[in-house]
Design a protein around this nucleic acid. Structure first.
Lengths: 240, 240
DNA sequence: CAATGAAGTGCGGGAAACCGCAATATGTGG
DNA sequence: CCACATATTGCGGTTTCCCGCACTTCATTG
């Protein structure tokens, strides 16, 4: 059994390697890559089917690497081992996981025991192992209560990129008014109103800018999701 | 000689401890804190004058911790050991360093040799040791060329928080028009114009939203700087 | 099939953002 | 003191944002 580690912090890499050899004696080979791109390459060369990776790497995000790897071999088991439980990451992962693939999401703050348990669960038992902290987000983001629909998330990203209502309408094939409707729902759910307390003589917040701000502060968005969206936007702009 | 480590990642903590004991045999005591708040407390109790800390911690940012520590004892030598060289961090640090204090800024990607050299330079020789990658930013941010003045940076933060022009004017004691002028300079420097290529029939970007976006993408702003600014804004709002 | 509800669209208007122009500080060096 | 650059302010006007209101789809359900 062969396991591929994709992780850019060398300290975390040796920690992972140790945890793996202890938790999985049936593993006889551990390969390592220190960025997403190299990870994709190694996965292809070794036809790796068991991978542990960080999200948030320089040359290629974990999400991106996982997507191309899963596109080539959807049965690959991947454990995401990440510092953060931002909604943007969780949403990004659950958006790309193929039907029936075994995967996991555990935080780096988890104990060594939890990590080892997840390793066995995913790679031996073929289960999905998701940390409780992350699980909470996942529920919320897919279910209704307080969560966001995909279309709301879309406009959130679009205004975060700085697009005008009109540009969003063009991009998403909607009327201007529909875009504005979605924005209003978004403002509603983000609770942008309730803004300032005392004399409401003049508004203190620009709604769209404020929405981006609170989305960032509440970890609904993060910068690497933004980077991703930026290149997608670039594609779209040149394509037309 | 006593050294205080403030760092939330346990792996990095032991790595640091090892590097310190190897590079500084004259050091006979190493104390550790795993967040900024605990770090402040330990610094006070031990009257620590030699500190190595991470920026980017949960309970209290490195910047915040350093500020209170330096306020109490400005001659403290602090080495910032960070993952990122975002302009927001560099600007934050150089904003709070007291006159004549020894400090350093080295990236976690630096070799162990560089780290040890910095440790000796700062704690023994009383020098300032700043990594080249960081140095570049520092030049740019303080000097003119392409850099931002403090007032431009201020409005950048304000629009990132979602404030309206009027609200910014009130907060900074300026006229509405002055705020708008600063914004235009900001847009100029961020190169927001040059935006879309072919048919400029309608604008594709909302300037203020786009400005925040590119500032984030170019690491002129980051989320923890935003969080910081958000609480300052909260203070200001209640105070009036 | 009628009823209910959710999402999209058009119209209209008030508020904010964006910006050119010009007058007035403020300040720095000769 | 004057000359010059820089920053601030006011005015006016266009564009975009924000949103209430009314109408249309379209799907779900009893």
């Amino acid at each position: 059994m062969k396991i591929l580690i994709i992780e850019d912090d060398p300290l975390h890499r040796v920690y992972l390697r140790d945890a793996i050899t202890e938790a999985l004696p049936e593993c006889d080979l551990v390969i390592e890559a220190d960025n997403g791109l190299a990870g994709e390459k190694l996965a292809r060369e070794h036809t790796a089917t068991h991978i542990v990776m960080d999200l948030q790497m320089s040359t290629r995000t974990g999400i991106e690497a996982a997507r191309t790897i899963w596109r080539e071999r959807p049965e690959t088991a991947i454990l995401f081992w990440s510092n953060y439980s931002d909604e943007a990451y969780v949403r990004g992962v659950s958006r790309i996981v193929p039907e029936g693939a075994a995967y996991g999401y555990v935080l780096k703050t988890a104990s060594e025991g939890r990590l080892k348990l997840a390793l066995r669960g995913i790679f031996i038992e073929g289960q999905c192992v998701i940390d409780r902290e992350v699980r909470g987000l996942q529920q919320k983001s897919l279910g209704q209560r307080g969560g966001f629909t995909d279309s709301e998330y879309e406009v959130l990203v679009d205004i975060a990129l700085g697009l005008t209502d009109r540009a969003i309408a063009r991009r998403r094939n909607l009327s201007l008014r529909s875009v504005q409707n979605r924005l209003q729902q978004l403002y509603e759910k983000l609770d942008i109103y309730r803004a300032t307390s005392p004399e409401a003589d003049t508004a203190t917040y620009n709604l769209r800018a404020r929405a981006v701000s609170v989305a960032l502060l509440r970890k609904l968005l993060n910068v690497s999701a933004l980077e991703q969206a930026e290149v997608e936007l670039g594609d779209w702009m040149t394509r037309r």
